[in-house]
Design a protein around this nucleic acid. Sequence first.
DNA 1: ATGCCCACGACACGTGGA
Length: 260
Amino acid sequence: MIIASWNVNSIRARLPRVTEWLKEFSPDVVMLQELKCPDENFPRLEIEELGYHVATHGQKAYNGVAILSQYPMEDVIYGLPGDDSDDQARYIEATIKGANGKIRVGGLYLPNGNPVPGPKFDYKLGWMDRLILRAKALLAREQAFVLGGDYNCCPKDEDCYDPARMAGDALTRPETRDRYYSLLNLGLTDALRHYAPSGPAYTYWDYQRGAWQKDNGLRIDHLLLSPQAADRLRRCDIDRTPRGKEKASDHTPIWCELEI
DNA sequence: ATGCCCACGACACGTGGA
C-alpha cells in the first residue's frame, strides 16, 4: 500500500496537477493539505472518477485537509481532538481497510506559527501538544498508523537550505523541534529518515527568489509511523516531479510503501 | 535588497503562507 501526503496549496487551483499525479502514480491513499475551500466546493466527482473514496474537512479560504483512498474508509474524525474552540480545519483521520489488513491514517496541516513570539506561535505549540496526546492515544491501540502531512517543522538545520536565514523562524524554533522530537520519542518513525538518515531531502520550495531553480528548499512534510506500521515499511521517497511543473504547488508529495 | 510569489475573495498595496 502506497500512502502519500501533499500540501496542494488550493485544491481548485491545483486540480489538473493533482489528477495527473493520481493517474500517473496511482497511490492507494493520499493525505491532502491546504485545500482552501469549503467541503461543498471540493472537486469530489473529479477525484472519485479516478477510483478514490474522498473524505474532506475544509473551510473557506484557509487550511483544509482531506484523505483520498482507493480502499473504503471507516470511522472518520474531523478536527484534532482536545480543543472544542479550535475552528481551523487542520486534521482528519480515518481507518483504511486494505486487502491484507487495516491502517489508521491521520492527515494534518500543522500551524505555521509565525511571527514569533505571538498568538500564532502559541497556537502552534498548543496544537503540537494536542497532536502528541493524539499520538499517545493511537499508540495505546497497538496498531499500524501513520501521521502524515505538513508539519511546518524543519527537524534539524540540515532540513533547511539556509539555517542561518531560518534562525528564529517558527519552523526551526527549539520549542517547535522539541515537540516534533517528543512525537518521535514516543516511538514513531520518520519514514524518510529511515532511508535517508541525513542530508537534504526537501519537500517545499518558496515561490519567490527562484527557490526551486536553486534548490533552496525545506523538509517540512513528514510521514511518522507507529511501530506496527514501521515494521511493514518497504520504501519512502519524495516525488519532486510535480514541483517542476507549470502552476505547481510550493510543496511536492512525500510517499511511503507499507506491506499492508 | 529580510522587497521580487501565489491564492483567496471581492478590490485592500487586504491576509496568509513559510
